[in-house]
């Protein structure tokens, strides 16, 4: 007898598709996602998009205001700084340092922190609780302070700043993953799966892991905004990216001297930083509520 195919005609959307459907209904989330997409494009294609090299100095156009003011020219859309470097090119190249690098650092930290956290949660006893309490102590120190200490030991520079932020982010991932997995371990459906005789790996990867995605998404976006902010802060303090590099934080620091005579030199990198951070946070937050919403329905 052929089984009736009543519901198969209308395919049930997969969990990921459902999250996307939820996400798409949120206007602000979509705006933020598009901005984020644009920033990713800038990061990837800065050499193609930027009109000039970020460090070329145009001696005929020092401190040129943006093109929409009376003194501005269309040659420099966002004006130039006090050394005659094109602001637009610097901002586009800066996206690589201020958004691209933190993004890679967060991925690298997640790649180490998440497996270790899962391992810590699946083990029990003294080892696990020692790890937990050590991490708690480590996490009570603000990330920027910890990064400052590491930079103080290793010396200033973009590489060391990245290394410091990577080291600071790993325990955060470890901690978040450990707590999320630990929270799941005694849920009834996990016990039920264990009573089904499943392997430890299946239990972790198929049964527990999808239920921790929400926590991990939040952690990833929080880590990304922390990394962006810390790189910028270290750059601003002169401990991260060094002067000619078009990193948004160090551009801000340099602009302090000319803040009154050419305010756009200060406003533009600040605005770029602000937009990036807000988009990252909005996308992360909306993803979290979209996942929440999917489970509730």
């Amino acid at each position: 007898m052929p089984t009736p195919k009543l519901y198969y005609e209308e395919r049930t959307p997969s969990p990921l598709e459902q999250v996307w459907v939820q996400f798409r209904h949120n206007m602000w989330a979509m705006i933020a996602l598009h901005i984020l997409g644009a920033i990713v494009l800038f990061t990837l294609f800065a050499p193609v998009l930027a009109p000039y090299s970020p460090n070329t100095q145009f001696t005929d156009a020092l401190s040129m205001p943006p093109a929409w003011t009376e003194e501005g020219t269309i040659r420099f859309l966002l004006g130039t700084d006090e050394l005659g470097r094109d602001m637009l090119s610097r901002l586009l190249y800066g996206a690589r340092l201020s958004f691209g690098l933190p993004f890679l650092v967060v991925l690298a930290a997640a790649a180490i922190g998440i497996p270790l956290g899962a391992l810590a949660a699946m083990s029990v006893g003294v080892k696990s609780s020692t790890l937990k309490h050590l991490l708690d102590v480590l996490l009570s120190i603000p990330s920027l302070l910890l990064a400052l200490i590491i930079v103080a030991i290793l010396g200033p520079g973009l590489d060391n700043a990245l290394l410091a932020i990577w080291l600071v982010l790993i325990p955060q991932f470890l901690h978040a993953t450990r707590n999320a997995v630990h929270d799941q371990r005694h849920r009834e459906y996990v016990i039920a799966s264990r009573l089904n005789g499943v392997s430890q790996w299946y239990l972790l990867s198929v049964v527990i892991f999808p239920n921790t995605v929400k926590v991990l998404v939040v952690q990833l976006t929080m880590a990304l905004s922390t990394a962006i902010l810390d790189i910028a802060a270290l750059g601003f303090l002169g401990l991260g990216a060094q002067s000619p590099a078009p990193e948004w934080g160090s551009m801000l620091a340099k602009s302090v001297e000319v803040a009154y005579s050419s305010p756009w030199v200060m406003a533009l990198p600040g605005f770029a930083l602000f937009i990036t951070l807000v988009s990252v946070n909005v996308v992360g937050d909306s993803l979290k509520s979209a996942i929440d919403e999917r489970i509730k329905r």
């Binding site: 459906y189 089904n196 999808p210």
Partner: peptide, 27 residues
């Protein structure tokens, strides 16, 4: 075993079919 709390004993992220398959998959 059949648990008391039906909501808590089914995994919200897997389809019913996948969950019923589990014991077969491993045994």
């Amino acid at each position: 075993m059949v648990f008391q709390d039906t909501d808590a004993s089914l995994n919200p992220h897997l389809t019913i079919g996948r969950q019923l398959e589990e014991p077969l998959l491993f045994n």
